[in-house]
């Protein structure tokens, strides 16, 4: 019996969310007393046995063109075969773009209960119960999975990454599935920027910045901090910033270690997407801005003065 962990490897490189999933799956397998098996679909960069450091025993590398398919149905049917082959009782995904596409398809094919957006390991005293985020981060739900096979996709930045495990054994398999039905005609990479959902630090700005021409100082602060940039909805709606920076209840939900909100009022819909951040810093000239109620640290002041000083202070700390 085993816990399978699907390794999220967009374009071949294995990302932080996969390390979290591997650590989660390894800890869960230890808890259940079964094997922890990572699953690499298609070509991945680097030495797969090194993924043992996150605590997994074994890596199954699925070879063949189909394992690189752009059609999530093809990947789900490969995984269906793998579930049987590896006698899996639990499959762990990252709640990433790929996970969101594949996990529900696998759930339907195997009639396996799926909990998305999990934030912690299951408890098994009263059935198999997983804690997940609901109401856009405003609450948690404990969800029991009643099917024999259980699927979990974990939220980015929600599980501690293990270290120090020994090398995993690597096994190659060739599996086949039905032909893809989706054809890709064009790929556009916006850039190799840091992924917003994976970023440890996020610098976010709102309408208080007055206009897109003032974002230079926001980008500079983000740069010195190694942070990703985000924005409030009206900023994206006005096309001051791209849509993929819009965080909140109707944008992207994030949970960085540090979230810095500049010139954002802190409307309930904005907070919903960012309130799982570990530490929140708010810079706003209005002391009554609702964001201060959700913040850990705050400065009541003009962003146009505070932000450059902030950048200078971080540079000084980092000695750059």
């Amino acid at each position: 019996m085993s816990v399978l962990i699907i390794i999220d490897a967009a374009e071949g490189s294995i990302k932080k969310s996969a390390f979290e999933a591997l650590s989660y799956g390894a800890d869960l397998a230890a808890q259940l007393g079964v094997t922890a098996t990572g699953v690499a679909l298609g070509k991945t960069e680097g030495d797969l046995s090194a993924l043992g450091q996150y605590g997994v025993n074994k890596i199954v590398q699925v070879n063949g063109d189909q394992a690189r398919s752009d059609d999530p149905s093809v990947l789900a049917s490969l995984l269906t075969a793998l579930v049987t082959r590896e006698q899996a009782t639990v499959v762990v995904f990252s709640h990433s773009l790929a996970g969101k596409a594949i996990a529900p398809l696998l759930s339907a094919k195997c009639k396996a209960g799926l909990v998305t957006g999990a934030v912690g390991l299951p408890t098994t005293e009263n059935g198999f119960v997983v804690k997940r985020s609901v109401f856009s981060g405003k609450a948690f739900a404990h969800v029991r999975i009643d099917s024999a096979l259980k699927l979990i996709s974990i939220n980015p930045n929600s599980y501690k990454i293990n270290t120090g495990g020994s090398a995993a054994t690597v096994e190659s398999v060739l599996l086949t599935a039905a032909a893809p039905r989706i054809t890709i005609t064009k790929k556009q990479k916006s850039s190799n920027e840091l992924l917003l959902t994976e970023a440890e630090t996020v610098v976010s700005a709102g309408r208080g910045m007055k206009g897109p021409e003032n974002w230079g100082m926001i980008e500079e602060l983000a740069n010195v901090m190694g942070a990703a940039t985000a924005c409030s909805r009206p900023v994206a709606d006005a096309h001051w910033r791209p849509h993929n920076e819009h965080v909140g209840q109707t944008g992207i939900a994030i949970a960085p270690t540090l979230y810095i909100a500049i010139g954002i009022s802190g409307a309930i819909q904005h907070l919903a997407g960012v309130n799982r951040s570990k530490v929140i810093v708010v810079i706003n000239k209005d002391p009554e801005a609702p964001f201060f109620k959700a913040a850990d640290y705050g400065i009541v002041g003009d962003a146009f003065e505070v932000v450059p000083a902030f950048t200078a202070a971080v540079k000084k700390l980092k000695g750059v």
């Binding site: 759930s107 009643d146 708010v282 913040a295 850990d296 003009d302 202070a313």
Partner: peptide, 29 residues
């Protein structure tokens, strides 16, 4: 259904904001 909610939970409330004067940004850092 394949799953069921057994309980809901609200996140713990924030301890409260620590305010730093606008000319003390180094202290914030």
């Amino acid at each position: 259904p394949l799953t069921s909610v057994t309980a809901f939970e609200l996140p713990p409330a924030k301890a409260g904001v620590k305010l730093i004067a606008p000319d003390q940004v180094e202290e914030l850092v």
